[in-house]
């Protein structure tokens, strides 16, 4: 089953939520929706989406608060969707950490394009300078295609699961750098996840079996025992 990017839609107008969901799912995204700020925060923490569409005019809390809250622990790209047209609001949102700002009413192509841009930027948002402009990273026989959410080993699809892909792509964005167990767990399962490494180890074991020729002598994902994992950068 193909891995898809997950989009979280935080929007209180149900009709807008509905058509956004329809459009996104028809364009190959997975969607999760929330109608209030509190619900949104809970879902960010539990689903760790790849992109967030945030409406500013929420009934229970200001979208800005959510943004501030989120930016304490995550760099998940946020596209602010708003009916407020004032420049001062746009600036405030961008200052608070939004990655982009789209005004209602918006066209569908514009929405889709901005989501693509946000995802592309987040792919290169790490420290790996070898990621190509079309969002691919190659090392040895391993290719990570960030845009298509695929990992190829020796030309064929490694068939990673959702979580396995997310781990590999995270390591890929920071190829050459060690990422601690805690950091990986937080990025994948949210700030409130148990910091028990077991689930991470199991996932890594499965990944190694899919991409490494010899799981005990890894070529691509190296372990720094007691600390974390590192993806090879050459």
């Amino acid at each position: 089953m193909a891995v898809k990017h997950k989009v979280l839609i935080i929007e209180d107008e149900s009709s807008i939520q509905y058509f956004m969901q329809t459009i996104l799912e028809s364009n190959g995204y997975d969607t999760v929706t929330a109608s209030t700020g509190k619900e949104g925060i809970a879902l960010i923490n539990s689903h760790c989406p790849d992109v967030i569409l945030l409406d500013l005019g929420l009934p229970d809390m200001d979208g800005m608060e959510i943004l501030a809250e989120l930016r304490k622990w995550s760099l998940i790209p946020v596209i602010v969707v708003s009916a407020r047209g004032e420049e001062i609001d746009k600036v405030a949102a961008l200052d608070k950490g939004a990655d982009d700002y789209i005004m209602k009413p918006f066209g569908t192509p514009e929405l889709l394009a901005r989501i693509k841009v946000a995802l592309r930027h987040s792919a290169v948002g790490g420290t790996n300078s070898q990621i190509t402009p079309d969002s691919r990273y190659s090392v040895g026989d391993l290719v990570i295609d960030f845009a298509k959410c695929r990992v190829l080993i020796e030309g064929r699809d490694a068939e990673l699961t959702q979580n396995e892909y997310r781990i590999v792509s995270l390591l890929g964005k920071y190829a050459g750098r060690v990422l601690t167990y805690d950091y990986i767990i937080r990025q994948l399962w949210g700030p409130n996840a148990k910091s028990d490494n077991q689930i991470l180890r199991v996932n890594m074991a499965n990944i190694r079996r899919k991409i490494e020729k010899r799981p005990a002598e890894p070529r691509y994902i190296l372990t720094e025992v007691g600390i974390g994992y590192r993806m090879a950068d050459e």
Partner: peptide, 11 residues
Amino acid sequence: PVTTIAGSAAA
């Protein structure tokens, strides 16, 4: 409402 109308029609 304009957003909904435009978006729903496009969808």
